[in-house]
Design a protein around this nucleic acid. Structure first.
Lengths: 257, 257
DNA sequence: CGTAGCTTTGAGGCAGTTCAAATATGGTGG
DNA sequence: CCACCATATTTGAACTGCCTCAAAGCTACG
């Protein structure tokens, strides 16, 4: 399968899906971003992208496929702490803490490109605007984690599942606006259960009810959101509003060849 | 009460308690950090530092006192999503998302200094090393939130409370190493309950058991950790290992007067 | 020294669990 | 294209951690 030019262009845009919403990127910045990432690496479905103890490469950019961040418990349980789609940086936790808190597993066939730390140094030195965007990205991830935390503590399992679907739908729409209400969901009920912190058996019951209430349709790994507003009300969350901050440093002309 | 020179020096160091562990700060950087913060503002115990909708000043540095980040539910419940001690930046969530996810309430008399956004722009432009440290700070907060999330989903309430005490103890030790196992805890049982996502009644029961098992002593807002190792085992977490990353940009000489 | 906010205790109830087993589904080799 | 196997989904039933409601001691502060 030869890659058409449009495919390549789209794939490039996928890799920037998390940064772009914060503001436009200059030509020098785009060049710098492309230069920073290492060669592509394939990871098969079910394969590990990052281990809990070991860290081969310090940071990875997910280029294609879906992955989940997991924290494994000693009693065999695990909690999934996040879902990664193309454009997400994987392994961020390892930058700030000695042993990375979570491991990352591909839930579909995936492609990642590693990002060497020297690249980060250069980026902070030469591209303050990109640096600020990375900072914002980290803050956004923190805010999303905090939202999940609050849901976990205070909301019923059904609401948590609804919130998961809503946020996922928004994230998918960043990549493919047309797929806002209908998209492939490469997650098993076990995965969903581990994401919202309940048992598989219980998740199944919730899904049955949601189907019976005509909120969603979920068959063969395809999620169809039938009543988006009702789902969001059930979740008790608002649309995620990303800012385009006014304080970002201005673009710089390309400094290094 | 006149402030002695040592008091002032110590207070300055408190304000940097979150940044310093990532690496040494140059003179120019210290100057820039001091210059960036606005005048001090007092907030009485119980007072709001940040509101959920409204945002007077975009960012605050907590200089003295404790605060908690809260997400209020429509049914009157609330989930506390974090504890802030001197040196913490308050209102980070508002930078990345339109309406800040959480509100922040002082749980003791507190002092904050606001940080104007223009200061952030200058910081990212002129001090890449500080910028990288801010990025790391955001990542560390994200990792801690993720850890709480995992505990919330998979650990029993007793473990969650133990984990809370352990992480608090580590944070307090950053400010006052001597107080690692014994410190003032200006939180009510209601606060503790909202932090770990259970009812007040249940938290009370857990505390009773912990006292009976001689793990802790908690009277009149003073926490005394009697058996640190057992508490950490119960929590099922390891000591928090902060990195001193190798990739930080080098210090720069002071650029602006 | 009164009063508002905290802490403690008891009893009944429900959301979500575990265990177990039947039924789909999808991928693989022949 | 089919048979087979592993993996995912679905269903039932007994059990428990944590909740709500309610009321009685505390503590601190004006």
């Amino acid at each position: 399968m030869a890659k058409s030019p449009t495919t390549i262009a789209r794939r490039g845009s996928e890799a920037l899906s998390r940064l772009r919403p914060f503001g436009p990127l200059g030509k020098g910045e785009l060049t710098a971003l492309i230069a920073i990432a290492g060669p592509a690496r394939r990871v098969a479905k079910g394969g590990m992208i990052r281990w809990a103890g070991h860290q081969a490469e310090p940071l990875d950019l997910l280029v294609r496929g879906w992955a989940v961040g997991a924290i494994s418990w000693s009693d065999g349980h695990r909690q999934l702490v996040g879902i990664n789609l193309p454009g997400d940086l994987v392994g961020l936790a390892g930058l700030a803490a000695q042993d990375p808190v979570d491991e990352v597993v591909a839930v579909s066939d995936a492609v990642v490109r590693s990002i060497p730390l020297a690249g980060l140094t250069r980026l902070f030195n030469d591209h303050p605007r990109l640096a600020a965007m990375l900072f914002l990205l980290a803050l956004e991830e923190r805010a999303l984690a905090i939202e999940r935390l609050a849901l976990m503590g205070r909301a019923a399992a059904k609401s948590r599942l609804a919130a998961l679907f809503v946020r996922l739908s928004e994230r998918v729409a960043q990549l493919e606006p047309a797929q806002r209400h209908r998209f492939d969901l490469p997650l098993t009920q076990q995965d969903l259960a581990d994401l919202i912190g309940v048992s598989t058996v219980y998740v199944n019951g919730i899904l049955q009810k949601m189907r019976a209430e005509k909120m969603i349709r979920l068959t063969r790994r395809e999620l169809h959101i039938l009543d988006y507003d009702r789902l969001r009300d059930l979740a008790g969350i608002r649309q995620w509003q990303q800012t385009t901050p006014a304080w970002l440093p201005p673009m710089r002309p390309a400094s290094h060849p």
